[in-house]
Design a protein around this nucleic acid. Sequence first.
DNA 1: CTTAAAACATGACAATTATCATATAATTTA
DNA 2: TAAATTATATGATAATTGTCATGTTTTAAG
Lengths: 225, 225
Amino acid sequence: MGKCESCIIRQFNSLKSLTNDELIRITKLKTLRIVKKGDVIFEEGEMLNGVYCVRKGICKLTKLSANGKDQIIKLVEKGELLGQRSVVSDERTNLRATAIKDMELCFIPKNEIIRDLTKNSEFAFDVLKHMANDLKESDDIIVNMAQKSVRQRLAETLININDSFGTNPDGTLSVLLSREDFASIVGTATESAIRVLSQFKKEGLISTIGKQIKIEDLEGLKRIE
Amino acid sequence: MGKCESCIIRQFNSLKSLTNDELIRITKLKTLRIVKKGDVIFEEGEMLNGVYCVRKGICKLTKLSANGKDQIIKLVEKGELLGQRSVVSDERTNLRATAIKDMELCFIPKNEIIRDLTKNSEFAFDVLKHMANDLKESDDIIVNMAQKSVRQRLAETLININDSFGTNPDGTLSVLLSREDFASIVGTATESAIRVLSQFKKEGLISTIGKQIKIEDLEGLKRIE
DNA sequence: CTTAAAACATGACAATTATCATATAATTTA
DNA sequence: TAAATTATATGATAATTGTCATGTTTTAAG
């Protein structure tokens, strides 16, 4: 297993604010976890004993609604931290994390993170900034959920995935989601999501190769308001 | 103007983690701001030069949607801090703050807050905890918006306001909101909010005295699923 | 390769919610 | 106090979205 000091991944998250000594400590304490597509990394309501640093892959954070449906709150990709909120609050997780692609995760024990948070205010400040950004994004999602149509939300979801995760060589979105996942991001019935995607296809905004989606008219999608 | 060291309000927010020296510095730098019901404390997109500590009153945080409607994201009451997110991120505000009752706010300059955040890791950690909690609440709201009906959301809103802010001596909710405000919390048309409230009234779940609302059957409201 | 299971797709219809119109009550202003 | 404005209320109707049924395609398992 590699050393945190020389790991590039940490440049993308708050761990970049740790000192060399702190990184050396973490290198000794961290454990690697390999997770396959579809596997659950942690359940909603679980007590987390640390945070995960995502080395490879992508996962979804979901919350089970009272009506039995899952709502996807966020997609987390390589470079991001997973579980900080629960560790910071010293509470059980409020979300479930499920791998969307095969993943490699570095698990860093809670005690070490807490220690660094209280000792290294630059690190604490950086984690704070990241959480502030998450909060802003969540607020935006609330407004979208409350004020926009399924059609608008789905168009934005496609645009966001395209922007954040990019495309494969053939132009299809690199993150492969099921229609149910799309419905779960947008907060609608699976059938409704399928229907709107079919509509987009008819309008020439997207094309599909199997369940892969390719954006054909990004500007057109943006124009859906 | 009073001294921060002896102010009770700060026990309710992160300022309680400041040292006595830091509080004395803040006392000298802070300014009092009096705001009347309906007044805007800061606009969406404004650059904030500090944070507000709410000494008295309540305000709403709203975001303007693309369709021109305001969405209420959060109600902030006495004891809470206002504007930390923007100050921490060093970004313009993403929300507008409007007083719902007459308010008294202590304004603490940004530099001082940033200084304390970087010097005092206990303070930084505490602000972090508060933001983690805000984030969790926002995630819950997303799920509610996405998965529950207007009727359910409005029932929950009444319950939350009752729990968080309590009632007047006559039993009516102590926070007086317009029907438009309710619609803006729930994310629906004003007419729809009015209709559902009328329905609740017919069902004996609430009663109204003018625009004041009194919860008559809390358990009944909770049963709406 | 064949079969079973899961995911995708679409029609028909019901339920929810938005919009527009209009009326009444409450509040503010002149 | 009267007039004007704003907030509340409700009906009628349209638009959106959900649910159930059913068929097809894709994927996984044996």
